[in-house]
């Protein structure tokens, strides 16, 4: 065997290790769109809260219910867009959408996310909503870091960014809203664009 063959061997090994353990068809475009949904949602919330609620939110008011609905819609649309675009990309890559690697990815992503979501609902029901923005950022960041082992490694850095933003938000709850806008809106657009040009456009 010549040296070229050894090199080829190593790259085959690396390739197969990645392919068999990581789900790599995440779409960068879905990140960009999720960021845009988050920005639209945040703009609507800002408008509602400043116009009807004099800058404060109370749990029993109708404004809060609208804000909750907006938040839900942002999450829902992001997930639907993500699934749609990822399925499309997986088909192009000849990667199956529901196999061992995508199941592991989803499982590891959902553990911190579901735990965090329930925790946030619990403290909301106790009337402590000052930390919500920060907690959402922190748990979402943890979910990304935990999922990054089973997907494109770059989402780890988005995870770290979200965690740091979340910690800052819990230090300065007054800026929670703006940090949320940066974390879920702007960061998604930046990382989504980066991933789109690195992986999608070939």
């Amino acid at each position: 065997m010549s040296d070229k063959d050894y090199l080829k061997d190593i790259s085959t090994i690396k390739n197969l290790m990645n392919k068999s353990s990581r789900f790599i068809s995440l779409s960068g475009l879905s990140g960009i769109l999720a960021g845009i949904y988050a920005l639209i949602g945040a703009a609507l919330t800002y408008y509602l809260v400043t116009t009807y609620s004099y800058g404060t939110l109370t749990l029993d008011g109708w404004v809060f219910r609208y804000v909750f609905f907006i938040l839900f819609m942002v999450a829902f649309l992001s997930v639907v867009t993500g699934i749609y675009l990822t399925t499309k990309k997986a088909k192009q890559n000849g990667e199956s959408i529901w196999d061992g690697s995508s199941k592991r990815l989803l499982f590891n992503f959902l553990i911190p996310l579901v735990a965090g979501g329930l925790y946030i609902l619990i403290i909301l029901s106790q009337g402590r909503y000052g930390q919500t923005g920060g907690l959402m950022l922190i748990f979402y960041g943890l979910a990304l870091v935990s999922a990054s082992k089973y997907s494109i490694g770059d989402i780890k850095y988005l995870g770290f960014t979200e965690i740091i933003l979340g910690l800052i938000a819990s230090l300065y709850p007054g800026y929670g809203f703006w940090l949320w806008v940066i974390g879920f809106g702007i960061m998604h657009i930046i990382y989504g664009t980066y991933m789109h040009f690195k992986y999608d456009v070939k």
């Binding site: 061997d9 085959t12 090994i13 690396k14 197969l16 290790m17 392919k19 068999s20 353990s21 196999d99 061992g100």
Partner: peptide, 21 residues
């Protein structure tokens, strides 16, 4: 090499998965 690579990073793999990979 392929079989070993896949099994090194996965707890197990079945025949069909290996065949496809």
């Amino acid at each position: 090499l392929g079989i070993m690579s896949v099994l090194m990073v996965n707890e197990y793999a079945d025949f069909k998965t290996l065949k496809e990979l």
